[in-house]
């Protein structure tokens, strides 16, 4: 059940995209997201789609697996589409009481859904191809300039990588405790809202206890290895741009340039 959510997971295959520097992927993803909302004509969608699907092809992550992640955000899609559908002013084609559907409404609803789909696919592709550790390393390096204004960049990224690292562990733990309680006759699936909320106590109490225990152990282990923050800390695998990354930046620039040109058409 929980395992169906594929967003944010890492998909271990060996591809060009997996080998890219995480900073390139981070910048690329942010640029791509902005680009999705920057163009205003239909050709833009084609360029964005071609770009996205060639990147997906390059990543070697099965399309089916990526699309599965969309399931989790279907509600969001329906929500935005409905709002756009009913609340866009324009030429009315259907009217019933206070409900009014316009041509413009239909068009924006469809286009908005496409944009959101691309956005989710694009950003989940980053997590599919980048290990959490790599991702936080990249983030730390990109945010480094903020240290000048006393932002605790290292601490933030350390917290992030620990949090990310613990998601699968806690998920597994949840699964285990759930099964252990089901073996004792617990029922998580039937009953009304109150009964279901109550049935979560045997799951949540052990889960919190174990999360605190793990946090304690981890803190102890880090201190035992003399961890004392980012001051003077070096990395085993420092991030370095290679030719591959420069090439990727060029491709990215090309994509942006293509969008700018097309927007003028």
């Amino acid at each position: 059940m929980i395992r169906d959510i594929t967003i944010g997971q890492y998909y271990p295959v060996d591809s060009l995209l997996h080998k890219l520097d995480p900073r390139v992927k981070l910048i690329g993803t942010i640029l791509y997201i902005f680009s999705l909302f920057a163009f205003s004509n239909y050709y833009g969608y084609i360029v964005a789609a071609v770009f996205l699907f060639s990147i997906i092809k390059l990543s070697k992550v099965p399309l089916k697996f990526i699309l599965r992640g969309l399931k989790a955000v279907v509600v969001l899609f329906v929500f935005t589409a409905t709002f756009n559908l009913f609340l866009t002013p324009g030429t009315t084609i259907f009217e019933y009481g206070f409900i009014k559907i316009t041509i413009e409404g239909i068009i924006t609803a469809v286009l908005m859904t496409i944009r959101l789909t691309f956005l989710i696919l694009g950003s989940s592709l980053m997590t599919f191809t980048t290990t959490p550790n790599n991702l936080t390393d990249g983030l730390e390096s990109l945010l480094n300039p903020l240290k000048k204004i006393k932002v605790p960049v290292h601490e933030i990224s350390m917290m992030m990588s620990i949090a990310l690292r613990f998601i699968p562990i806690l998920m597994e733990e949840t699964d285990k405790i759930m099964k252990a309680q089901m073996a004792r006759g617990a029922d998580f699936e039937t009953g009304g809202l109150v009964k279901r909320a109550k049935s979560l106590i045997p799951l949540l109490v052990p889960l919190f206890v174990s999360a605190f225990r793990r946090a304690n152990d981890l803190a102890m282990a880090m201190e035992a290895r003399c961890y004392r923050g980012g001051e003077g800390r070096t990395k085993m695998k420092p991030l370095k741009y290679t030719r591959r990354d420069i090439l990727a930046f060029l491709v990215l620039m090309l994509y942006i340039a293509a969008l700018v040109v097309i927007n003028r058409l």
Partner: peptide, 24 residues
């Protein structure tokens, strides 16, 4: 009985915890 079954304990007292199974 799972591995490390003590990780599934959740009640306030030992007795109440053991009651969980038969009550279900």
């Amino acid at each position: 009985v799972f591995q490390y079954p003590e990780h599934q304990l959740f009640e306030t007292t030992v007795f109440k915890d053991v009651c969980f199974g038969p009550r279900n």
